[in-house]
Design a protein around this nucleic acid. Structure first.
Lengths: 199, 199
DNA sequence: GTCTATATCCAGATAGAC
DNA sequence: GTCTATCTGGATATAGAC
């Protein structure tokens, strides 16, 4: 378990930690981190101020735990995709399909991961784009280029081209501009994405 | 002049308004809106608390003025592009070239326009993606589709595909992941973008 | 219109009983 | 470990002289 994660020794303790993190995720993504007070979290989680401060060192600690656990979850999911698919084509498509599905099923997760300004409330953090999952995505593209599946380009440009359109659709969906669920757009956007870089 | 903009009747007044807005833009994009206090803005702008509150009704008012003026500026620039170019190909390329240039010359402007969570501090605002400039971008693509330049797709998917990669590169550049200036990547990303949707 | 001095409020954080 | 009651700082915003 990562160091920044709040310890949860007892069963009740684990439940409380979980309640706080879920409440915080909801509130942070609905109102923003700075518009969310500790009293808000107390209300929404039904865990007292004292317990919250006991488990998470401070408000920032809640955000850090959240960030770490979600990044870890994405990492695992992407590693799984890497092991199940061999080609860049299949891997990248699976990543986009996963992100689309997650956006529908857990919009708060995606909002927090992709569209929060983490560094404004967790100062020591590196930009999200340099977090493991994003590195994994770029690595899939790089490997595909080495294998001759993807045409020779600046690797970062190729990655932006493969994933840029899909990420944009995710943002539009989260902002309420798209009315159909994202998976409905998967075929079309993937055809575009792949055509943009395929050898 | 838009209603939300602070009035600036005298010459000195106009200068003060400008100083406050520039200071706020710097601070909001460097530290975030909520990490920026009025005393910070007083220091950075060399305009007193009293004057600031006289010109802008409150802290949020500064952000609103900033937002309005920057949106207006983008609108004008895009309309200019529309009048100078006829085809979707040339228009969209010009938009990306402009955004790339602006990102290098005025990174704070781009950071504020594209990557601030405006709605967290200006509650009544619509999502940026539904602001005029974004609508103009989508409209350029839609017209290209009607003209047969761009293959038939969900219009929003086509727009995401044309601009998604470039917007992604802008974000990476602002986050310090890219070391070369964006215009160096223009040819490559544009080739990808256009290939993804060209008829 | 501009400035300084100041009021008010409420957030984050802690103390200490249980 | 959990809870309630409380402290404290600093932020937004105002008052009122100039």
């Amino acid at each position: 378990m990562s160091e920044t994660r709040a310890r949860a020794t007892t069963e009740r303790g684990a439940a409380a930690t979980e309640q706080v993190m879920q409440a915080a995720l909801r509130l942070f993504t609905r109102q923003g981190y700075f518009n969310t007070s500790i009293p808000d979290i107390v209300r929404e989680s039904a865990v007292s101020t004292g317990s919250i401060y006991h488990r998470f060192r401070d408000k920032e600690g809640i955000a850090r735990s959240l960030y770490d656990s979600l990044v870890e979850r994405m990492e695992t999911a992407f590693s799984d995709i890497e092991s199940r698919h061999q080609s860049a084509h299949d891997r990248c498509r699976a990543v986009i399909a996963l992100l689309f599905r997650l956006t529908e099923e857990e919009p708060e997760l995606m909002r927090f991961m992709l569209f929060s300004r983490h560094r404004e409330f967790i100062p020591e953090l590196a930009p999200v784009c340099s977090s493991r999952p994003f590195v994994q995505m770029r690595e899939m593209v790089r490997a595909g280029m080495a294998a001759g599946e993807i045409r020779t380009l600046e690797p970062i440009v190729a990655a932006a081209s493969v994933f840029g359109g899909a990420l944009r659709l995710i943002q539009l969906r989260l902002d309420g501009i798209l009315d159909k669920p994202l998976p409905d757009y998967l075929e079309e956007i993937w055809a575009c994405a792949w055509r943009s870089v395929a050898e």
